[in-house]
């Protein structure tokens, strides 16, 4: 078996699995006493698998959402889309590979696809800045949003970023300005916007392409105002409290359905989407097409109006109503 990435919470299970493999490599015919042991270990692994993956905590889900083998935006585009024409660059500064914009067809529907783009390996990740977007990336997305609106193409977005990049150049080129502009444009485009949370939903960098008329999230993806680690280091001065903070922030897909922010949750196979990417991606395809179909008939102005009303309802306040 090839070496695979092991998440912190699945380590005990991984150790047993390694042990089982070692046992199986031995010649059981020559060691009949081991047969029983193999059976027992197999049963034990089955039990542990259930208890490890059955109900994941918020922090465990965050880890699954960051799994390097988890299907990424480019996997969804390659698998679900045909006739793809990528649109590079912001026409002002450069092309940010941390975000992809493309004309793409999903199940016969012509769309503009936007997505955060993480890499599959270190080399790719360095090129794509681990999915952390610079201002020119958001400006590329804005350009594509305008294009979608002018030609009546619905927008489909894939959310998967640790956050907007916190760096000197990003600040110099107006990171906040670029995000604010993306929010403004996305709130007003008169075409359907369907968003899918496929991995990490890190703060403003995620939100810039992460809200619309329908928000679908994978079961083990997260969407949060701040990363659990940063929250822990600000409030507790201790990043070690990240697990606890993940629980407090209500950042899982399930939590966000309750808060009225997420519309639907796509179930993942036991252990996470990386265990069966094909099944997860085809489930996403169905959900996206369902959402696009439901939104297709609406008048352009009515779409934007309904999106505003949708945003308008989000929030819990005290002290005054009306």
């Amino acid at each position: 078996m090839t070496r695979r990435y092991v998440m912190e919470f699945e380590r005990p299970l991984a150790e047993l699995e390694t042990k089982l493999e070692e046992l199986r490599r031995l010649d059981l015919a020559q060691n009949p006493e081991l047969v029983h042991e193999v059976d027992e270990l197999t049963a034990e692994i089955e039990r542990l698998r259930e208890s490890t993956y059955g109900t994941l905590s918020a922090w465990e889900k965050v880890q699954v959402s960051r799994h390097p083998d988890r299907p990424k935006t480019q996997d969804y585009i390659e698998t679900l889309c045909t006739d793809v024409i990528e649109l590079h660059g912001d026409r002002a500064f450069g092309d940010d590979e941390a975000i992809v914009a493309a004309l793409a067809t999903i199940g016969g529907v012509r769309t503009v696809v936007l997505g955060h783009r993480k890499g599959k390996d270190t080399r790719e990740n360095i090129k794509r800045n681990f999915g952390m977007v610079h201002p020119e990336g958001f400006r590329k997305a804005i350009r594509a949003m305008h294009l979608a609106e002018r030609f009546g193409l619905p927008i489909v977005t894939f959310i998967d970023t640790p956050g907007a990049y916190p760096g000197i150049e990003a600040e110099e080129r107006g990171q906040a300005w670029a995000i604010a502009e993306a929010l403004s444009v996305l709130s007003g485009v008169q075409v359907p916007v369907v968003c899918v949370g496929i991995g990490e939903g890190g703060s403003g960098g995620a939100l810039a392409i992460g809200f619309g008329d329908r928000l679908i999230m994978l079961e083990n993806s997260y969407y949060s105002v701040i990363s659990p680690e940063a929250c822990a280091s600000i409030l507790h001065k201790d990043a070690g409290k990240a697990a606890e903070m993940a629980g407090c922030l209500a950042l899982t897909a399930e939590d966000l359905v309750e808060l009225g922010i997420v519309d639907e949750v796509v179930p993942e196979p036991l252990g996470g989407a990386h265990r069966d990417p094909g099944a997860v991606m085809s489930a996403v395809r169905e959900r996206v097409l369902g959402a696009l179909g439901a939104l297709a008939a609406a008048e352009p102005a009515a779409i934007a109006e309904r999106r505003y009303e949708r945003l308008r309802r989000i929030g819990v306040i005290a002290g005054d109503v009306g």
Binding site: L183, G204, S224, L249, L251, L256, L259, I261, G315
Partner: peptide
Amino acid sequence: GMLSLMQM
């Protein structure tokens, strides 16, 4: 949490 982010 996310209720704050959505205010943006």
